[in-house]
Amino acid sequence: MFKRAFWPALLASVVAVTSGTGSASAQKKYDSGASDTEIKIGQTMPYSGPASSYGTIGLAMAAYFEKISGVNGRKITLLSRDDGFQSSKTVEMTRMLVESDEVLFMAASLGTAPNIAVQKYLNGKKVPQLFVATGATRWSDPANFPWTMGWQPSYQIEGAILGRYTIGAHPAAKIGILYQSDDSGKDYIKGFKAGLGDATKQIVAEISYELTDPTVDSQIVALKTAGADTFFLHANPRFSAQAIRRAYEVNWRPAMIMASVGASVGSALAPAGLEKSVGAVTAAYLKDPADKVWENDKALLDWAAFMKQWYPRGNLNDGSNVYGYSLAQTIVAVLRQCGDNLTRENVMKQAASLKNLELPMALPGVRLNTSPEKFLPIEEMRLVRFDGTSWVLMEAKP
């Protein structure tokens, strides 16, 4: 349905939806990007470059906005621009979206460094920077950045969960770490070490990689040489696949703990070879579409039907498509709460007023809650282990 040649036209086009029902305030109020018939939303996404595997998030969101029956009688126009995961391009595209396209707000732009590059600008303009697609802790800082809000669990929260698991499951571990050399990697490592506690002394090697590196082959060999028997891997899907494949090639078989951002079955584990990741552990907050436990789950069946009809070229085993779908549903929930008061101030107010929002594809027990003091909607995660086909919950209950 979405051929590559038509991506620019698709991503910059109006995603029209038919009228729906919703609450209406007595007085309609609009800022730039909103009217009686339309809501314009801006976004930057790496459709090209080293993080292009995440571009499917934007496509899944576009497809969802095209599919839904409407938000308070208004169509959604999603303007999603390719920044190639380059901060300078993010700045250029964001300024275009705000000053030329006059979007109401920015939503789910991807990447820690790209979002940092525009955070002060958007806050200075009082344009909501909503549900950024990254888990850096700085997205939950309403005192200093009242117009920026995260969405997923912070990398430090996840890192701490994985650190506690690692030392509990492998008390004598000799730990090797590979991480992306940017703020997201630093956040993960800070949380992971906090989870390890005194066991940080069991880290035998800690190595980073740059997004511009052609491979991480040398880093994997160095970790093996250091004697690590437990491997904490923070990388995007492309480099996760490389790391897993190289470890297998050099006959290094450590216990593997993976950051969720690089643990997609479709875009990381499958390209590496599924058998190479059996036994790996990560933390999750969304349902894995490849997990057979959900094969008769209504929410997953609805998601699969949505994908087949509205985004048929999307990979049904790629968790990023669940992520984009769920982000889009969160944005719709906020817009419904806004009613006819579509000012930037009210969009931010409603985003900070989510109460026990349940997303269909969230794991049981995961609900979204925000307040004026809490800009981190999702904080719960559950441990999952890869069985060669899918990520399987390690606990029976939330």
Rank of each mutant, 00 (worst) to 15 (best):
H170V: 05
E206H: 00
T215R: 12
D213Y: 12
T212L: 03
Y155Q: 07
L162D: 03
Y209Q: 13
P214W: 11
T225Q: 15
H170D: 02
Y165L: 07
G159W: 07
Y165P: 05
P171W: 03
F192N: 11
S154M: 02
A169M: 01
T166F: 02
V204C: 04
A160L: 07
D213V: 14
I177M: 06
S208V: 05
I167V: 15
L196S: 07
I203L: 14
T225A: 15
G227I: 05
A226Y: 05
V221F: 04
I175P: 06
Y188I: 11
K186G: 01
D213R: 14
S154N: 06
A173C: 12
E158N: 03
V204A: 05
Y155T: 01
K174V: 03
G227P: 04
G159T: 10
G185Y: 05
V216G: 04
S218V: 13
H170K: 12
K174E: 01
G168L: 01
K201P: 09
V204H: 00
G159P: 06
I207P: 00
K174D: 00
S154K: 02
K201G: 13
G197N: 02
Q180G: 06
S208E: 07
Y179S: 08
D187A: 14
Y155V: 02
S218P: 04
F192D: 11
Y188K: 01
T225D: 15
L223W: 00
Q202D: 10
L211N: 15
I189D: 07
A173I: 02
G185N: 03
L196T: 10
Y165D: 10
Q180R: 11
A226R: 03
E206T: 06
T215F: 08
R164W: 03
D182R: 08
K224T: 00
A160D: 13
I161N: 13
A226N: 02
K224H: 07
L223E: 03
